[in-house]
Design a protein around this nucleic acid. Structure first.
Length: 485
RNA sequence: GCCUCGAUAGCUCAAUGGUAGAGCAGUUGACUCUUAAUCAAUUGGUUGAAGGUUCGAGUCCUUCUCGGGGUACCA
């Protein structure tokens, strides 16, 4: 990026040498008639093919050369002989650098070591690499370079590439699933005048022509509910949320969320939806319901069994399990002390329900490795859901935890505009959702009862693919820019 | 934000406070079935940046930059 080094100068010299011979190393066009994988599948001795790819290995044998080219599908060995290509072309080939893009025409054959190989009859240089690629054997392991220059990571580490191919397959399966269930996919504003639907710090941006600030959305919820009011009974959106908060192995400032709303459903409808969706995606993309997470040495560190049915348990039961049967009978001060004694970090300004929730988030959630629907959370925690008739201090919601993380919350959505306004106005705790009057106006026009769910797609993918950091399922995780000089 | 660990050749890594090194790739040469090709020779460094201590600093100290982990914030 900065000053030249000798490796780059060498490659530039090779580029100039090619041009001097009248060869344009960035040829405008070479059209392969097959992929490397296709050529392997359709192998037939003597079959003529044209393949193109990046040269990733180069083994000269005097008057013959073995080299590898790689495209998006696979690798293919190419065999080049001096007397087949002609002396001039052979000399050109010898001056190519690892990383150059090459088109090769020739015929397929099998070497003595039984490797399917393309015997070159002609080749075209279609893209010259002026910088060296990471070493082929040690690969690229510097974490910062892997994230800043993800393209190098994708070239050097095939398992990284596999993660992102699978990420694509997972999202595609999810879309197919939702469409089969009669949901339609919509797109709602990412720039919002009132950032609602969650209580997170937003990013602010400025619209010059309108002369006002907008917020990047922190949730999709309130716009999708407007669509329920409008008669779109089953809607979903897969989109980016932005939260101006800390970065960690489980948090990136922008992350992908799926939210779905189904009119005349409730939180139990959403349980069935989530179980069906995730088990299907796991079977189709990962090929199993038993997910193994491994450490860097390949030892299995945890096994997640997604077989149905998943555990269902009430929030208060889990709290009593961890905090004692009398947890809800003792005084708030005693609860605070007990939470601290148990090892939960409790800030001095926490209100009583936050103390209990601290116990849940710090000491219970991380232990929920197997899929678990935690239901009936205290009403103070979520203002957008309906109270539970059997216990009106709680709401009809679940948080689905897998792999020690919250993967998906779902509610029986509040559709009473008066109760909704009250819940938003009277929110307890530090963080509050902003009051979105346009949303409340929409509710006053009548929203059907509905079940709604939000699925953290990145965390879901981490769980399914055994990745320990959200950065390893995001192609370009957020990093601080390198300062100049 | 706080705590902590780290940054050495293109890549992966060494180097008691005492001459900055290895493998790979690169360069030159040999070789028409190699595939981490092999063999021979060889180039390559402002040790993340700036100061300081010392006869002497990659190594010790201070500040800064970037990154990893933890923690706080994230209903």
């Amino acid at each position: 990026m900065e000053e030249e080094n000798s490796l780059i100068e060498q490659r530039k010299a090779n580029l100039a040498a090619l041009r001097e011979k009248g060869i344009e190393p960035f040829a405008n066009k070479f059209t392969p008639n097959e992929t490397c994988a296709g050529a392997r599948e359709n192998y037939e001795e003597g079959r003529e093919v044209a393949l193109a790819g990046r040269m990733t290995a180069f083994r000269t044998m005097g008057k013959s050369i073995f080299l590898d080219i790689r495209d998006g599908s696979d690798r293919m060995q190419v065999y080049a002989q001096k007397n087949a290509l002609g002396e001039e072309a052979f000399e050109v080939l010898k001056k190519l650098d690892l990383g150059d893009f090459l088109g090769v025409k020739g015929t397929m054959f099998t070497t003595r070591t039984e490797e399917i190989t393309l015997k070159a009859e002609s080749f075209t240089v279609v893209g010259k690499a002026l910088r060296p690629l990471p070493a082929k054997w040690h690969g690229l392991s510097n974490i910062e370079t892997r994230y800043r220059q993800r393209y190098l990571d994708l070239i050097a580490n095939l398992d990284v590439k596999d993660v992102f191919y699978k990420r694509s397959a997972i999202i595609r399966e999810i879309r197919d699933f939702m469409h089969e269930r009669g949901f339609i996919e919509v797109e709602t504003p990412t720039m919002q005048a009132v950032p609602g639907g969650a209580a997170a710090q937003p990013f602010v941006t400025r619209h010059n022509a309108l002369g006002c600030d907008f917020y990047l959305r922190i949730a999709l919820e309130l716009y999708l509910k407007r669509l329920l009011v409008g008669g779109m009974d089953r809607v979903f959106e897969i989109g980016r949320n932005y939260r101006n908060e800390g970065i960690s192995p489980r948090h990136n400032p922008e992350f992908t969320m799926l939210e779905a709303y189904q009119a005349f459903g409730d939180y139990e409808t959403m349980m069935e939806l989530l179980e069906s969706m995730i088990t299907r995606v796991a079977e189709k993309v990962v090929g199993t319901l038993v997910i193994e997470h491994k450490d860097s040495e390949g030892n299995v560190t945890r096994t997640i069994d997604l077989s149905r049915p998943w555990r269902r348990v009430k929030y208060k039961e889990l709290i009593r399990e961890k905090g004692g049967d009398d947890w809800f009978d003792i005084s708030p001060d005693e609860r605070r002390q007990r939470a601290i004694d148990l090892g939960a970090e409790i800030a001095p300004d926490y209100e009583d329900f936050e103390v209990t929730n601290g116990l849940f988030e710090k000491l219970i959630e991380p232990t929920l490795i197997q899929p678990t629907f935690v239901t009936h959370l205290p009403k103070e925690l979520i203002p957008l859901a309906k109270l539970s008739p059997e216990d009106p201090t709680t709401i009809e919601v679940f948080e689905c935890c897998i792999n020690g993380q919250e993967i998906a919350p779902a509610y029986t959505e509040q559709n009473d505009p008066v109760a909704q306004r009250e819940a938003l106005v009277n929110q307890a705790g530090e963080e509050q959702q902003k009051l979105d009057d346009d949303f409340l106006t929409a509710l006053e026009h009548g929203m059907p009862p509905a079940g709604g769910i939000g699925i953290g797609i990145d965390r879901l993918i981490m769980m399914l693919l055994g990745q320990e950091s959200i950065r390893d399922v995001l192609l370009f995780p957020q990093l601080k820019p390198k300062s100049e000089g």
